[in-house]
Design a protein around this nucleic acid. Structure first.
Length: 772
DNA sequence: TGTGGATGCCTTTTT
DNA sequence: GGCATCCACA
C-alpha cells in the first residue's frame, strides 16, 4: 500500500478510518477527491469486494474521474465492479431492476426538466387555469421541492400546510396539478429526475426485504459533495447504511451553493447529530492557492454564521494581492480583462487555459465574449445549450424513446407531427382528451381508435394509423436489433433528416452533422459496452437509459485545448486555474437580487468564496458603475461582499483615465481606432510583475484583423459569403467579410463595415447582398 | 397548418 | 437586448 505515502497526516487518518461513520470536512483545494479515491483503494487493497462499495457523486464526470484514478491505483479489473456513479444513475439502475414492484416497467423513460414542464403546462391548460398565474416553471419547482422532501402527490394533497402556502401564493390548485402530473407520469411509464430519488425511498419504505437486500450488498457507503445532498438523498444514504453505519461523507459546508435545487446544508452541519458515533476529520491544508488567496477567502467566509469552524491554511508562497478594479461600464470591464489576459500570458508564461473568467449569470458572458474575440483570444464558454438539448437531437431521441416506451407521452407529442405529416394540434388535442377520459395513454388510444371512439375524419385516422404502424414496427425490433443499426434505420425511415437534406443551408447542414454525431455516439457506446462487458449485442434502451442522465457538465475539458474558460461561478466548483477573473462584483448582481433572507445572502457569500478559491496564483475582481442589462443601462454600487474581505489582502486599483471621461459619447461597439487605442492604455489590472500597457505588436495585430482563433465555431467552408468577399447591408453599407462561423447552428459572419465598425451578424436575419 | 408581428419575461441549474 | 410565446391572419 505504497500509495498511502502520498497523503498528509489528516488525509491519512481520514482514509484509514473505515469502521463507523465519518465526516470529512474538506476545505477548498485540500485534496478531497484524493481522500475519497484513496479510501476506496485502501478498502480494496484490504480485500473488500468492489461490488460491496457504493460511492455516490453528483456528476458523472466526478464518478468517471474517480473510477479512473482508483483503477490506476488498484487495477481496472477491480475498479470496474465498484458501484460508483451519481445518485440518479445508481438509483435509476436499481429502480429498473425492481421496476415491477412500483408499477413501472424496466424501460421507463426519464423525463428531463423540459418534458416535466411541458407536461405540467398541458395539465394547467386542461384544468383551464391561467398560466400567467400558474406558471409551469413555478409549479414544477413546487413539485420538485415536495419530492425532494419526500412528499408524494397523495401526501402533498392531504397536507393542509401546503394548501395554505399555495393559497397564499395564489396557486391553491397546485396539489391537483401535482396529483395529475404524478398520474400522467405513471401512465407514461416515466419518471422525472426527482422521482428517481422519491421512488427509491418509496421502494425501500414499502418493501423492507428489498431495502435489506441492498443494505446487505453495500457494506461501505461513501458520498462526495455531501453539503449538496437534499433530504431524499440523505434518507437513502441513511437507510442503506443503517445496519453497519460504515458511511463516510466528504464535503465542505463553505461550498454549499445549490440550495435552490433542494440541497440542505444542515445535512452536513448536523451529521454528527444524525450519526452519534461519527468521527470528524478536517482537511485544512490548501495545496492549491497562495496564502493571500486562502487568507482573503477565509476572511470572507468568516462573516457567515452557519458553518463548521475550520482553519484553512496554505504553505504555498504568499503571492500577489487580490486586485480590485472599478470601471465605468461592463464593456470596459470586459476589455480590461481581455487586455490583462494578453499581458499576463506574455509576461508570466501563462497559457490561455490557465485563465478563467467567472460571472454570476450567464448573460454576462456576451460582452466578455465580444472583447475576447476582438482581441483574438481563444475562449470556451461552458454552460448554455448542451448537445443533448438541441432540437434535432431531442427529436431523434424522442423517436427512440417512443419506440422503446410507447406510452411516453412527451416523446409522442414531440414527434407525432415531426417531420410534418398532417397531424395538427386539433387532432393531438382530441387524442389527448380521449386518452384522459379513459385514463389511458395516447398510444393506447392510437392502438384502437374505434374502441375509444376517436372523433377524427378518415384521412386523419389514416395518417395516425400510418404513424402508429411505423412506430410499432420499430418497437418490435428494439429487443432484437443492434442499437446502432436500429438507430440508423429510424433516422432514415422517419425522415428526420430527409427534409434537411433538401436545402443546403448552414443550419440544416449542422443539423445533419449533429444527428450523425449522435449516431456515432451510439456506435461508440455499443462498442465500449461490447468490449468492456463482453456483450454480444447492445440494445437501444441501454443507450437511452444512460443518455437521459447525461449533461453538458460532463464533457471533460480537453487539456490540449488552449482556451480561456468562461463560466458561471456555479459551474466552476471543483475546478482550478492559475489566474481567475471575477467580474460584475456589484450589488443587484452578486449577491443576486433574488437572495433576500440572511440564509440566501450567506449562500451568495459562499458562492463568492467558491469563486475566489478557484484561483491558484492570481485573482482579479472587478465591478462596474453601469451595466447593460435587460435592454437598459443600470447603475450599481460595489458588492457588499468586497467589504467582507480583509483589506490587507486587497489592492484597489484606481482608474483615473476612465474616471475623467464620459462614456456617453462612445458607441458601445464602436470600433474606432482612437477609442481602441485609449482602451489599450487603460488596463487597470496591472500585470503581476509590472504595470506597463500592452504592446504595439498586439495592437497592430488587432488592426490587421487576424481572424479569431476561436475554432470552436467551425468555419463554414461553402459559406454564402466567403471570407474576403464584399457585401452590402441595408443600414451599415458596404463591408468586407472577415470571418464566417456557425454558432448554435446559425451561420454567422464578422463583417467589417469600415467606419461603421465590425459587426457580427446572423445571416438568417441580416439581409445581405453579395457584391463581386 | 404555418407565419409574423406584438407582448412579456428575464438567476444560479451537479441530475 | 433577445428569446419564447401567443394570437391574428393567409
Amino acid at each position: 500500500m505504497d500509495f498511502l505515502n502520498d497523503l498528509n497526516k489528516s488525509q491519512l487518518e481520514a482514509v484509514k478510518h473505515t469502521d463507523g461513520p465519518s465526516l470529512v470536512i474538506a476545505g477548498a483545494g485540500s485534496g478531497k477527491t484524493r481522500v475519497l479515491t484513496y479510501k476506496i483503494a485502501y478498502l480494496l487493497s484490504k480485500g473488500v469486494s468492489p461490488a460491496s462499495i457504493l460511492a455516490l457523486t453528483f456528476t458523472n464526470k466526478a464518478a468517471r474521474e474517480m473510477r479512473k484514478r482508483i483503477g490506476e491505483l488498484v487495477g481496472y479489473q477491480t475498479s470496474k465492479y465498484l458501484w460508483m456513479g451519481t445518485f440518479h444513475s445508481i438509483f435509476s439502475r436499481i429502480l429498473r431492476s425492481e421496476a415491477q414492484l412500483i408499477g413501472f416497467t424496466k424501460d421507463f423513460t426519464i423525463y428531463d426538466t423540459s418534458d416535466s414542464k411541458s407536461l405540467i403546462k398541458s395539465i394547467i391548460k386542461e384544468l383551464q387555469l391561467d398560466d400567467k398565474i400558474y406558471k409551469p416553471g413555478n409549479i414544477f419547482s413546487k413539485i420538485s421541492f415536495a419530492k425532494n422532501n419526500l412528499f408524494s402527490a397523495q401526501s402533498y394533497f392531504d397536507n393542509p400546510d401546503f394548501l395554505k402556502a399555495d393559497t397564499h401564493s395564489k396557486v391553491p390548485r397546485t396539489r391537483e396539478i401535482y396529483a395529475i402530473y404524478a398520474n400522467r407520469c405513471k401512465q407514461a411509464n416515466a419518471m422525472d429526475f426527482d422521482d428517481l430519488l422519491l421512488q427509491t425511498n418509496l421502494l425501500f419504505r414499502n418493501n423492507p426485504e428489498i431495502l435489506e437486500k441492498y443494505q446487505h450488498i453495500f457494506n461501505f457507503v461513501l458520498v462526495d459533495e455531501y453539503q449538496d445532498t437534499n433530504f431524499a438523498q440523505y434518507l437513502i444514504v441513511k437507510k442503506l447504511s443503517e445496519k453497519h453505519e460504515r458511511i463516510c461523507v466528504v464535503g465542505d459546508d463553505a461550498q454549499s451553493i445549490y440550495s435552490f435545487r433542494g440541497a440542505n446544508i444542515d445535512n452536513i452541519l448536523k451529521f454528527q447529530q444524525t450519526y452519534q458515533h461519527a468521527t470528524l476529520f478536517k482537511l485544512e491544508q490548501n495545496y492549491r492557492s497562495t496564502q493571500t488567496i486562502v487568507n482573503a477567502a477565509n476572511s470572507l467566509i468568516d462573516k457567515n454564521a452557519k458553518q463548521i469552524k475550520k482553519t484553512i491554511f496554505s504553505k504555498e508562497k504568499v503571492g500577489n494581492l487580490i486586485q480590485v478594479s472599478n470601471v465605468l461600464t461592463d464593456f470596459e470591464e470586459a476589455f480590461m480583462v481581455a487586455n490583462s489576459i494578453k499581458d499576463l500570458k506574455r509576461k508570466e508564461e501563462h497559457s490561455y487555459k490557465d485563465f478563467a473568467v467567472l460571472y454570476r449569470t450567464n448573460s454576462q458572458s456576451r460582452v466578455m465574449e465580444e472583447a475576447l474575440r476582438k482581441q483574438n483570444i481563444p475562449y470556451r464558454i461552458y454552460g448554455g445549450l448542451s448537445f443533448y438539448q438541441r432540437k434535432e437531437i431531442k427529436d431523434v431521441i424522442a423517436y427512440f424513446r417512443l419506440i422503446s416506451n410507447n406510452d411516453d407521452e412527451e416523446a409522442l407529442k414531440r414527434i407525432i407531427n415531426y417531420p410534418a405529416r398532417g397531424i395538427g394540434s386539433v387532432t393531438l388535442e382530441k387524442l389527448s382528451a380521449t386518452a384522459q377520459t379513459h385514463n389511458v395513454s395516447i398510444w393506447t388510444v392510437l392502438s384502437d381508435m374505434l374502441k375509444y371512439n376517436l372523433n377524427v375524419n378518415a384521412g386523419t385516422a389514416n395518417k395516425l394509423a400510418q404513424f402508429r404502424d411505423m412506430i410499432a414496427v420499430f418497437s418490435q425490433q428494439i429487443q432484437i436489433l443492434d442499437a446502432y443499426e436500429l438507430a440508423n434505420n429510424i433516422v432514415k425511415t422517419t425522415g428526420v433528416i430527409a427534409d434537411a437534406m433538401h436545402d443546403k443551408s448552414a443550419e440544416s447542414l449542422s443539423r445533419i452533422d449533429n444527428v450523425q454525431e449522435l449516431l456515432k455516439a451510439i456506435y461508440e457506446f455499443s462498442e465500449t459496452k461490447k468490449n468492456e462487458e463482453g456483450m454480444d449485442i447492445v440494445l437501444l434502451p441501454e443507450f437511452l437509459s444512460e443518455v437521459s442522465l447525461l449533461t453538458d457538465q460532463d464533457e471533460t475539458k480537453d487539456e490540449n485545448d488552449d482556451k480561456v474558460t468562461l463560466m458561471t461561478v456555479h459551474a466552476s466548483k471543483g475546478l482550478e486555474f492559475r489566474t481567475v477573473y471575477i467580474v460584475g462584483m456589484e450589488e443587484q448582481l452578486f449577491p443576486s437580487p433574488f437572495a433576500k433572507s440572511p440564509d440566501e445572502i450567506e449562500e451568495e457569500r459562499r458562492l463568492f468564496y467558491v469563486a475566489i478559491t478557484r484561483a491558484e496564483e492570481n485573482c482579479f475582481i472587478s465591478y462596474s458603475k453601469s451595466r447593460f442589462r435587460n435592454g437598459q443601462t443600470n447603475f450599481s454600487n460595489p458588492s457588499r461582499f468586497l467589504k467582507d474581505i480583509d483589506n490587507q489582502y486587497l489592492e484597489y486599483i484606481q482608474n483615473e483615465v476612465l474616471d475623467s471621461r464620459s462614456t456617453s459619447s462612445f458607441n458601445r461597439w464602436d470600433d474606432d481606432i482612437e477609442i481602441e487605442r485609449n482602451r489599450f492604455r487603460q488596463t487597470p489590472f496591472r500585470s503581476a510583475r509590472s504595470a506597463t500597457a500592452s504592446s504595439t505588436q498586439q495592437f497592430s495585430r488587432k488592426l490587421m484583423k487576424i481572424n479569431s482563433a476561436d475554432d470552436d465555431k467551425k468555419t463554414v467552408d461553402n459559406a454564402r459569403y466567403p471570407v474576403g468577399s464584399f457585401v452590402k447591408h441595408a443600414i451599415f453599407g458596404i463591408g468586407k467579410v472577415i470571418e464566417t462561423s456557425i454558432s448554435n447552428g446559425n451561420e454567422k459572419a464578422e463583417i467589417d463595415f469600415g467606419e461603421k465598425g465590425v459587426k457580427s451578424l446572423l445571416l438568417k436575419f441580416a439581409k445581405l447582398e453579395k457584391l463581386d
